[in-house]
Amino acid sequence: MSHGSEEVASATIELLEARLARLSYLLTGNTDWTGTPSGPQKPASLDDTVSRRLIRLERELEKLSRAVPAVRDLIQLHDRFPDLFNPTPPRDIPEHLSPRTLASIVLSYATAFPETASRLTSLNDLPIPDATTSASLIAMQPRLDRMAQTQEEQAATLSELRVRTARVLQRWYEVGVMGSGECWAEWEGRLEGLEREVRRREVIREKRENEI
């Protein structure tokens, strides 16, 4: 191995050791008398491992989301828009742009600054709702949930009634309207046959009378 490769390998190992020490300090927050971060202690049991603790936290979060609608809404918001919960990383000013171009970019957003400031000011002017009102609204949440469930059941019942009504109307149309039409058509045909028979007999009678 060449001398340059040894230096690169040594620098890489030192960098990894520094990152490992930084991670150890973030996990434990303890250092020895020399300032070197101490490693994390071995868990006393399997339940104290990081994986088991994460599983317990996920279960507790799931229970909390089922019990508190606000937490459930927050989790859904995080799933739909994860970028809202991630801080925007700082970006360096591109060196290839001239000051005139940078100024034009900043000035293009100048109209948004007063609008944003007025909105923030209006938020500051909004009164904070009374705690008793918020507590009463929170206490009403179970009733609202029951009412929402009742509304869903009523909507399902109405949907079933609509289907049954459509079937009854279809049956009434097929039996009442179309059946009556067919019956009237049959009666009309029979009447026409009787009228033809009566006329035929009248013609025969008139011929007999004329012959006499």
Rank of each mutant, 00 (worst) to 15 (best):
R66L: 14
V68E: 13
P69R: 13
A70E: 13
V71G: 01
R72E: 07
R80N: 03
F81R: 04
F81W: 05
D83G: 09
L84D: 00
F85D: 02
N86A: 06
N86Q: 04
T88W: 00
I93M: 14
P94M: 07
L97A: 03
L97P: 01
S98R: 04
P99R: 06
P99I: 10
R100H: 06
L102N: 01
I105Q: 07
L107H: 08
Y109Q: 10
Y109S: 13
A110W: 09
P114H: 11
R119S: 14
R119E: 14
P127L: 14
P129C: 01
D130R: 13
T133P: 07
S134I: 15
A135H: 13
A135K: 14
A135L: 14
L137H: 08
L137G: 10
M140T: 07
Q141N: 08
Q141E: 05
L144T: 09
L144H: 08
D145Q: 10
D145V: 11
D145I: 06
T150Q: 14
T165W: 01
V168Y: 05
L169P: 00
Q170I: 00
V177C: 08
V177W: 12
G179P: 11
G179N: 05
G179K: 05
S180I: 07
A185E: 14
W187A: 04
L191D: 15
L191C: 15
E192G: 12
E195F: 04
